[in-house]
Computed example of a mutant assay.
Amino acid sequence: MAEARTLLTVIITTSVTPTAPSTELISTALQSFRSFCPDLLTCNVIVVFDGYDEIQSTPRLKKGRVTPEQAKSYGIYKTNVKKLILEHYGKHESGAAFAQSEGEAEFGGLRAGPNSVQFTTSVTLDKTVSFIEPSKRIGFGLAVRTALRMTDTPYVWVHQHDWVLSADIPLGALLDVMQASSSEPERPVKYVCLPSPRNLSYDTCGEVVEFPTLKTLTASLKAEFSPKLYPDAKIALTPLFHWFDKPHIASKAHYLERVFPSRLAMLRGDFIEDKIGHVCRTQMKDGQWSKWATWLYYPGEGQTHCVTHLHGRVWVGKEAEDKKIAELRSKGLTQAPKQGPKPEPVYDTAIFQQDSEE
């Protein structure tokens, strides 16, 4: 679909996983693209391979610490993923030529010395496939920002390697709604998150109805949009009062302006939803929802989830996961115990009041 190809770039982030050098995790995500949103495979794609900081006997992947075996496997994994991406995005020729360059991912912090990580990029000559490889761990937030700066399209699809699609996504119609909203300052659509099982019935959940401002916004803004280019489509959206990392579509310019207003906005290793999500939610409670313009795709009146999380840091492959689930079911345990909500961190919200990037 020409509209998707010209409007959107797919950003995929990946890192060291227990299943490396197998590509089963990211391959499962790509297969879900083919099943539920094949237009994603026609767009330009940028893959960010996050690095690691230390090699030691005990792994702590979230802290960038890997074992010697994992470090070796990750090198093989990156080679395997590059081949996989080229195949899925139609680059079947052997020995594809790349243009290579180097850059720096800068970040906030108080430590002495330069706060940046070197990275290398490899881009196919037609600029449709790009790979970014930081020399150390930068984390999800900086991985997304680094890819955004290489993007030539007005919109991006951000996808972590351990999420899979589970329902049809009308990509062209969603993009049409987002473009048309630029003429509706009272109802801008700058970010659309895809619902996971935890987002079902979001418009009536406690995170919304217990706050009068959010409840009123939902009642006034929730709607079915009619894309001009897709007259038979109805795109159901409800206001979202957070900025999640799970798969989403967003305006590139809005992303850079709101999430990355300066280098201080993101520390190395930060996740966007942890750092920015609580900031924007606080501002929305004060009536600033339109500043962030975040929406949740809401098919089936909020009863259809479109993405599923595979939990990459502990995922051991589909066969092993199926066996684990079967064992739990045999014991009458069909799901993990629910955890209480995490306390909301406190951040310097002044950083996100700025309107331009330093």
Rank of each mutant, 00 (worst) to 15 (best):
F211W: 01
D355H: 12
A180R: 03
V16L: 14
K72H: 11
R268E: 10
K215A: 09
A147F: 05
S196C: 08
T28G: 09
E301N: 12
G269H: 15
R149Y: 05
S181P: 01
R263V: 15
A105D: 04
T349Q: 15
C37L: 07
S57C: 13
R329W: 05
K252G: 03
S32I: 12
V81G: 09
R281N: 12
R258W: 02
L221Y: 11
K324F: 09
Y191P: 00
L217Q: 09
E344A: 08
D53C: 04
R65N: 12
T6W: 06
A20H: 03
I55K: 10
G317F: 07
E321L: 02
A97T: 08
I138A: 04
T334K: 10
E301T: 08
I12R: 02
L333V: 11
H161C: 05
E102A: 13
Q70G: 01
M178L: 13
Q179C: 07
V307L: 15
R34Q: 09
S330L: 10
E357S: 15
G302D: 02
I55F: 07
V177W: 06
T58R: 09
S166L: 06
L171P: 13
D39K: 05
K318L: 06
I169V: 10
S201F: 13
V189R: 05
V144H: 08
F241V: 04
T282L: 11
A253L: 05
K78L: 01
H161I: 06
G113M: 04
V259M: 14
F33C: 12
T14M: 14
H309S: 06
D232P: 01
G300D: 11
K91E: 04
T67W: 15
Q31T: 07
L41N: 10
R145F: 12
K275D: 10
L7Q: 11
L267Y: 09
Q354P: 00
Q179V: 08
V129L: 03
E358D: 15
F36M: 06
L8F: 03
L40D: 01
L174E: 04
G139W: 04
I235W: 02
V346E: 07
E210Y: 09
R5H: 09
L217Y: 12
F241D: 01
T120Y: 00
A97N: 10
D274I: 14
D270Q: 13
L148I: 11
A167H: 14
F33G: 01
R263M: 15
P21C: 15
L256F: 05
D176T: 07
E257A: 11
I85K: 05
F241Q: 07
V158R: 02
S181C: 05
V316A: 15
C280V: 11
T13I: 14
E54Q: 13
L194M: 13
T23V: 14
V209T: 15
G287A: 03
V189G: 05
E224Y: 04
A293T: 07
A293Q: 02
C193N: 03
P261V: 03
S122Q: 14
I26S: 02
K291D: 15
N44Q: 14
V209R: 12
I235M: 13
